[in-house]
Structures are given as structure tokens and as C-alpha cells.
Design a protein around this nucleic acid. Structure first.
Length: 860
RNA sequence: GCCGGGGUGGCGGAAUAGGCAGACGCAGGCGACUUAAAAUCGCUCGUGGUGACACGUGCGGGUUCGAGCCCCGCCCUCGGCACCA
């Protein structure tokens, strides 16, 4: 036991809790209620779902990145809003309740406490006084209030939507939980049953949501995904007559110019006209096909691309030429898009081409690249000029689209139309653990309302067609207490059978509460707004607070939320903006996705056995093989972390073994923030050694002035690290600090240099930063010290090394003054014995001189 | 199939207005200190060659004095979408 020696070492386990306690007591990271003019910065992490498993190493990646930025920006004089909270409604807690009987609120609270402990352990500079929890009734109050804003504006409505009902599990399943018509868990049959649901009219905002993407600094891949999800498509609606009937069929097409090539029509099996059009001889076969497609989910329908379909026996009349074309039904036409019916132009549409081939339907070419027609081996989908199209022959595709649409419109046989892939948002769930809807319905009882009681099962009718909003003053509508979370035989879920909560009397009349709950998206759609003013008891947020802090300047979170969460949040934001409740039209100015951290690389032989890295070697032709037996080829691959694979890394273990600062720095040093990267516990050692060296530099700092070279390195590092933090290039920032620490050590630890290192390092390794500052004899907290500024004069060296090439190959290096001209450089090169010799070997044809960069002689 | 991102030493990665490829770190090798080990420090470390040199950024072409970076054609890989008329 040598106590003096342990004192001489960097001990994160001692210093980290000490500084965390200091920050807490000092309230170092408290955000001012209002920022100073022009000094606000709102940096937001996507808040986590507090799962029972706790934090994994993926969480701290994005959190550390934003924490570094926030700490640096505070030191640069910004008022930074950097809050954290919990997206705490969700299915796992309810499933846990079903399995164990523990109330979801209890489980959730426990998990939140564990998450908070872990985040504090990592030293993040959140303003914990602004913490929000989406399950807190004070938060739910305002989630419900926002729903009422949507309801009042007619943006929330009810509809019958088919859900995946699994009777055996007694629950409604999400699409991804259904495989081949069976439940993923238990393999029980799943049927599609229509259920009354709340739907939000997000499609009314489709164009706004699309247009807004042009004004945000988001990854282009994410913007593209949102654009494709919205799926705006311009075309025309064309009306076809039905032979021998009064009925008409409307179709949507983006290629009205190919109307002359329509050789058949296809209706979706669910299309309302199918029964009327079908002839008696075809009816049996049609009924069979319709029944078969009825139980298929969209997913199943799309799993096979083989074209199937049945002829109805009916014929449609082409509005431009009166041609009679057969009407088919086929499930490659979706009822949910366009009109549920298409004009099929096999010559110019790949799917129609396949169908025509399968059922031997004529293919008529009406667009051609050169004006001639020929037999097509595949659909010709490119634009060209019209052929076999009557008076339109010779017109270019784009022109003909406009012309024929106008002509159809004039005759009342069609018009311009815009379609979207985006569907309205099904906003209700048949669950317990979610926000109740602030809605109730009148109940009609059979007898006298005073004596009949729907709670006891007396006959009654709930008038779902007459929804009534709960008074704002009565919010929140709380979840009823219960200990029964078991699935039941009613798809409507747990709340529907809690009759004492569901039914109530007012003014002598019976009413029934809405028993659906909101999806998990609801709470996460507006948490960034509540953070501006989290304790407001009168309003969801004050206009002043919103104006001061919005928009979010940087939003950090996983790419898995690229579409849904970010689209839903933007939608709510726009609705609230339209009501004058928000100061800006888009919520998140800049968005960054941190990459996924994969498990440590695994070396696997063809039999699936794993080998240690040291047993593997690379052959000359680049194959990985077993060193002991080169005939065994090894696959080296980093896999996604998963419990099943057993490669999950727990931050608690890493902090225990290396410290929070080492974990933070390692995750930033691994590679670019947005790239997915394999974890390597081995590599943390290097980062830990670096932090160790920094600690010793502070401990051993000498009161000597840094020499000129060290001074230049200090200032270059200040410039590099400052710029890299702004650009979120933390890996290169750390490598620059490693260079500085190595230089400072060689230079004998001059105090001024170590102070700069501590300041630059503290956003990355905040505990060590504070500790170094204190070892250097300075007062806490380093967070309150102004960020260092580089002296531009010290950023450029007076002398530079310029490589000299002969015919593009490096043959030497010249040391020249930084503004040497070509003549000086050439003279210096000729003065070099070796270079002169090489130059003399041929005729000089050309000299390339890039000042300060390169000198290249072309010799022939 | 379509749309994006990416292929650089044994490993993670650095370097793009086209200008010394491999910064920084891991692993490895040699050495110093130590009774020894750990820790620390120093040197070394793309491949071939004693060396001068030659070859090297997924593959094949091209542009250029000069290409990891730009252009054309492929291969692999990771994400997303997938009958949207």
C-alpha cells in the first residue's frame, strides 16, 4: 500500500463526482430565464425513452457532441439553452405491467431515475431545473391542449381505419408486428378489423411541409427522405365512361399524354364500382379475388410483385377516342392512392407492361424518341414525342401533357390534379399508457337517464359522431387508476372497460369519455417548446419565452427519426405558428444525426466460431485468414450492438474502468460524428493516456514562458480546436490537443501553455478541465473563464518547407521564406546539389510554381 | 430495382478550391527506468529492396505538370424506399 503514489495519479473516480457536486451546488449550468439580445443559442438533444436497460454507449455520443458545443459557446459568451427530459410514455412499460402487474408509472419513474443518474455521471451540462417528463400530468395538460387546438381547427377527425387485431393476444398490433398474417410474438392469427380512430389532417400541410425543407440546414439525405415520404406528384384526373352504364371512373395519371395508349383499366379490388361493373359470368371469380385481397395487409400485398388480376367483364370508354377498353381488378392498384383506379398504358409503364404481358393484352406505343413506332421489349418510360395520338402527333411529352389536360378540362372530362403519398396521421392507440384524449361523447340511454346506468351495462348508444372538447380549465384528463392491464376481447383496449371512469353524468345526462390514447409521438412533438418555459402553470409557454429562445439552433439525434418524428413535430409547429402562438415557421434550424456505434469487430470463421484479433492475419491478396491455418478464411465485421449478440457495452462499466471524461473523449475521437463506427475498448487506453498526460502537465506546470515554437503551436491549436468545435469535427480537435500536449511535455510544461490546453480541453473532458485549472492554482470554474483567442500573427510560420518534384515525383524539399517567389525558389533548387544534378540530366520544359505549396520541374 | 453515404496500413481514422498520402491514436517490435511487473519515457512501424529506388488510397479507363480528391464504366458495403399510376 503506497498512498503517496496513488495521490500522484489522475483518479477520475475521485475527481469526477467532486466536480459534479460542485456544479450542482454552484448551479453552474442554470440557463437565464431570458437570453441577452443576439446571444441566445438553443442546442437540443433528442430526449430518450427511459428504457429499463438504461443508457447504452450510443446515447452519450450525440449528448457529448452537443455538450462540447454548449460548454465552448458559454465560454464564448452565449446564453445557452441545453435541456433534457423524458419521452416516457410507451409500450415497454405497459408490457412490463401486463407481465408483472407493476404500474407503468412506477416502472417509468424508476427508469427515469436511473437515466438521470447515468447522465449526471457523464457530466453533461444540462440545466436540470428545466427537466420535463411527458407523463407528468402538468405536461399532459398541455399535450391535450394542443390536441384541442387541432380539434378546433378541424384538423383532428374520426375515421374507421383497419387495424391488426390479434384476438389471442387481445391487442392491436403495429404493421411490423404482423408477419404473414400472424403475430410476431406467438404466431397467432391476425385479422384486419375496422376500428374508430382519431386522425390528424397532416395532408393539409403537405405543401408547406415540403416547401419548408428548402429553408433548413438539414442533411440532404434527410430532406430527400421527407420529400419522398410526402411524395408530391402532379398530374391529371381523367374521367372514363363505363359502357352500357351511367357510371364514370376517375383515374389519376402523371402521364395524360399517353391517354391514346390506354389499352385497359384496372380498379383496386376494394373500389366501390367493382360490384356494379362486374358481369354475371365473371362475378364468381371476381368475388374470390376480392375476398382474398381483403385480409392481406398492404405489406403482404406488396411482398410479391407477381402481377395477378381478374377481368370484370365490363368495358370503359376512352374519353379522347371513344375506344372501349376492358376493365380489370388487380391488387397492384392501391385504393389508398389517387382514385383507386388507373388507366393502364402498358407501352409506357413498367407495371402495366408486366400485367399486359401476363394477360396478353395489346400494347400500343404512343410516345417515341424518334417519331417512329416499333415493337417494345419493355416499357418505354422516358419522355419523347407523341405518335398514334391523333391531332397531338409530334408534340413533345411536356407540351402534350399541358395541351391534353387543358382540352379535357374544357370538355369536362378531366382536370389538373396533385397527389401525395403522405396519408393523414392515425393518431390513436388502444393502449393504457398514453395521453387520454380530452374528448367525450353524448350517451343515449334507452330509459330515463336518471335511472338507467351505462356503467352497469344498461342499454345505451355512444354518439361518437358528436365529439365534445373538454373545457381547457378542466385539463388534464388523467388516466384512471387501475391494476388491470391485461389484454381483453375488445380491440378498444383497457380504458374502454373501465366503466366507472368512462361514463359520467353532467346536468342529468350521460356522457362517455374517449377511450383511445395518444401515440408516443404526441409528447415528443412539442417538448422543445415546453423547454422554453417549463414551469408555466398558465400557458404551455409564454410568447416572450418562445420568441426569445426559438428556433432550436442545433438539433442532434438519430437518423431513425429522419421522417416520422421530425415530420410530425414540424406539422404541429406549423399549426401552432398559424395560430400566432409561435414566432418562427420551422422549429429546427440545423439538424445533425450522430452515427451508430457498432460493437467491437468480430473475427468469424466459416463455421461461425469467433477468434481473437491476434489470431488473424491478412494475406498478400488481401484476404483475412487464421494465422495458425491460412486455409481458414475469416470474416472481420462490426455488428450492431444487441443483447442477443452479447456485444452491448455499458457506460457504467466504462466509467468505472476509465472515467466519464475518457468515455466522452473516446467517443468523440473514434471518427467523424455522423459516421457509424465500431467500438473498441482497446482504443480507449490511448485516450486515457492522453488525459493522464494532461493531468500531469497541470500538476508539473512550470512558471517559464513558452518558447517561440510552443507559442505558435498553442495558437494554432486554439484556432484549430475552435473551428473544429464549430464544425462539429471533434475527432480532429482532439488529435490537435494531443499534438499540443506532446509538445508541451517536451517543452517542460510551461504554465501558459498548459492553461490553454485546459481551456480547450474542458468542453471535452469537463471534470479534468476543472481539475487542471485548480491544479494550476486558478479559481473554479473554468466554465466561467473566457474562451482563448488565437493571435493571427502566430498562425503562419515565417519559413515553410516546399517539396520539389521532377516530373511529378518528389525529389527534395526546400526551406523558404513564406512569401518567396518563383525565382527565389528555382534558384534555391538549383543550389541544391542533388536537385541540380537531376535537372541537368534533361532539358527543362516547364516549371510549375504554387507559392508555399510546390515546385515542379518538367524535364524531357 | 430506385435514391443516398462510404471503400485509404494489422485496426480506428487524417489529408479535398487538385499540390509531401498515412496526422493523431490502437495493436506490434526494439530500448531506458525497475529485483520484477505495471505505469512512464525514447526509438521504430504501408509493401518490396542492404540501398539508390520501385510500387501503393476497391477495380478498369480518362483529364492534368500533378488525382485519395475531378470525369466515364464497374465491384463491394452500409442506410433508406420499394407496385404511389
Amino acid at each position: 500500500m503506497d498512498e503517496s503514489r496513488t495521490e500522484e495519479r489522475y483518479e477520475p473516480a475521485t475527481i469526477e463526482p467532486r466536480w459534479q457536486a460542485f456544479w450542482e451546488k454552484d448551479d453552474t449550468f442554470r440557463t437565464p430565464p431570458m437570453p441577452r439580445e443576439g446571444k441566445k443559442l438553443y442546442v437540443l438533444d433528442m430526449f430518450p425513452y427511459p428504457s429499463g436497460a438504461g443508457l447504452h454507449v450510443g446515447h452519450p455520443e450525440g449528448y457529448t457532441a452537443t455538450d462540447i458545443l454548449c460548454r465552448a459557446k458559454r465560454a464564448q459568451g452565449f446564453d445557452v439553452l441545453h435541456p433534457m427530459g423524458w419521452d416516457a410514455f410507451g409500450l415497454p412499460a405497459e408490457q412490463h405491467a401486463i407481465a408483472t402487474g407493476t404500474h407503468p408509472a412506477t416502472t417509468t419513474q424508476k427508469n427515469i431515475d436511473n437515466f438521470r443518474r447515468q447522465l449526471k455521471m457523464l457530466g453533461f451540462s444540462y440545466d436540470w431545473s428545466r427537466e420535463v417528463d411527458t407523463t407528468d400530468p402538468e405536461y399532459v395538460r398541455w399535450t391535450q391542449w394542443i390536441f384541442l387546438q387541432l380539434f378546433d381547427k378541424g384538423l383532428a377527425y374520426q375515421d374507421e381505419i383497419k387495424v391488426n387485431w390479434c384476438a389471442a393476444l387481445g391487442t392491436v398490433l403495429a404493421n411490423e408486428e404482423v408477419i404473414d398474417g400472424k403475430s410476431e410474438r406467438g404466431n397467432h392469427p391476425v385479422v384486419r378489423v375496422p376500428l374508430r380512430q382519431w386522425v390528424l389532417a397532416i395532408t393539409k400541410y403537405a405543401d408547406r411541409l415540403l416547401e419548408g425543407l428548402d429553408h433548413v440546414e438539414w442533411p440532404s439525405s434527410t430532406r430527400t427522405m421527407q420529400r419522398e415520404w410526402i411524395g408530391r406528384s402532379e398530374g391529371a384526373e381523367v374521367v372514363f365512361g363505363v359502357k352500357g352504364q351511367d357510371a364514370t371512373i376517375e383515374v389519376f395519371t402523371t402521364r395524360p399524354d399517353t391517354l391514346f395508349g390506354a389499352t385497359f383499366m384496372v380498379l383496386a379490388p376494394e373500389h366501390p364500382l367493382v360490384a356494379a361493373i362486374t358481369t354475371d359470368t365473371q362475378r364468381a371469380e371476381i368475388d374470390r379475388y376480392v375476398a382474398a385481397s381483403k385480409n392481406k395487409s398492404d405489406l403482404d400485398r406488396q411482398s410479391s410483385k407477381e402481377k395477378t388480376g381478374v377481368f370484370t367483364g365490363g368495358f370503359a370508354i376512352n374519353p379522347v377516342n371513344g375506344a372501349e377498353v376492358p376493365i380489370w381488378i388487380a391488387d397492384y392498384v392501391l385504393m389508398g392512392y389517387g382514385t383507386g383506379a388507373i388507366m393502364a398504358v402498358p407501352a409506357h409503364d413498367t407495371r402495366d407492361f408486366e400485367f399486359a404481358k401476363a394477360f396478353d393484352i395489346p400494347i400500343v406505343q404512343v410516345v417515341s424518341t424518334d417519331g417512329a413506332s416499333s415493337t417494345l421489349d419493355e416499357a418505354m418510360t422516358e419522355y419523347g414525342v407523341a405518335v398514334s395520338s391523333g391531332k397531338y402527333d409530334g408534340m413533345k411529352t411536356a407540351d402534350m401533357k399541358a395541351a391534353i389536360t387543358a382540352d379535357l378540362e374544357a370538355e369536362g372530362k378531366g382536370k389538373k390534379r396533385v397527389e401525395y403519398k403522405l396519408r393523414d396521421w392515425v393518431f390513436s392507440r388502444q393502449r393504457y399508457w398514453g395521453e387520454p384524449f380530452p374528448i367525450y361523447f353524448p350517451v343515449e340511454t334507452e330509459g330515463d337517464p336518471a335511472t338507467s346506468d351505462p356503467r352497469k351495462g344498461d342499454a345505451h348508444v355512444i354518439r361518437f359522431d358528436q365529439p365534445i372538447a373538454v373545457e381547457v380549465s378542466e385539463l388534464p384528463v388523467r388516466l384512471p387508476e387501475t391494476d388491470d392491464f391485461q389484454p381483453g376481447d375488445d380491440p378498444a383496449g383497457v380504458l374502454a372497460r373501465l366503466a366507472d371512469w368512462r361514463f359520467f353524468q353532467k346536468d342529468g345526462k350521460w356522457f362517455a369519455r374517449e377511450t383511445n390514447t395518444m401515440p408516443q409521438w404526441a409528447g415528443s412533438c412539442w417538448y422543445y417548446l415546453r423547454f422554453c418555459d417549463p414551469h408555466n402553470g398558465e400557458l404551455a409557454w409564454s410568447p416572450e419565452a418562445a420568441k426569445a429562445w426559438l428556433p432550436v439552433d442545433l438539433y442532434m439525434g438519430g437518423a431513425e427519426h429522419a421522417v416520422l418524428h421530425l415530420l410530425y413535430a414540424r406539422f404541429w409547429h406549423m399549426v401552432l405558428y398559424d395560430q400566432g402562438l409561435l414566432p418562427v415557421p420551422e422549429p429546427f434550424t440545423k439538424l445533425v444525426h450522430q452515427g451508430i456505434i457498432l460493437g467491437d469487430v468480430e473475427y468469424t470463421d466459416p463455421e461461425g466460431n469467433r477468434h481473437p484479433a491476434s489470431a488473424v492475419t491478412k494475406t498478400k491478396d488481401g484476404k483475412m485468414v487464421l494465422e495458425a491455418d491460412p486455409s481458414v478464411v475469416i470474416e472481420a465485421k462490426a455488428h450492431k450492438m444487441s443483447k442477443a449478440r452479447g456485444n452491448v457495452v455499458n457506460p457504467d462499466d466504462i466509467v468505472r474502468d476509465f472515467g466519464a471524461d475518457a468515455l466522452r473523449c473516446y467517443e468523440m475521437f473514434m471518427g467523424p460524428l455522423e459516421a457509424s463506427k465500431p467500438w473498441s475498448t482497446d482504443s480507449i487506453h490511448g485516450v486515457k493516456r492522453f488525459l493522464d498526460r494532461c493531468w500531469r502537465l497541470a500538476k508539473d506546470a512550470k512558471d517559464t514562458a513558452p518558447d517561440d515554437a510552443t507559442l505558435r503551436t498553442m495558437h494554432k491549436t486554439i484556432a484549430k480546436v475552435t473551428a473544429d468545435i464549430d464544425g462539429l469535427r471533434f475527432n480532429t480537435a482532439i488529435s490537435a490537443m494531443m499534438v499540443l500536449s506532446n509538445d508541451l511535455q517536451k517543452a517542460g510544461a510551461p504554465k501558459a501553455g498548459v492553461e490553454v490546453l485546459a481551456q480547450l480541453l474542458h468542453p471535452f473532458a469537463p471534470h479534468l478541465g476543472e481539475e487542471m485549472w485548480s491544479l494550476l492554482g486558478r479559481e473554479a470554474s473554468i466554465q466561467k473563464v473566457e474562451w482563448p483567442v488565437a493571435d493571427p500573427k502566430l498562425l503562419v510560420d515565417d519559413e515553410v518547407e516546399v517539396p520539389v518534384q521532377i516530373n511529378g515525383k518528389k525529389r527534395g524539399v526546400l526551406v523558404l521564406s513564406k512569401d518567396a517567389d518563383q525565382d527565389t525558389a528555382v534558384a534555391a533548387a538549383k543550389a541544391d546539389e542533388r536537385l541540380a544534378e537531376l535537372l541537368a540530366a534533361g532539358t527543362l520544359r516547364k516549371t510549375v510554381w504554387v507559392p508555399g505549396k510546390i515546385l515542379n520541374f518538367i524535364v524531357g
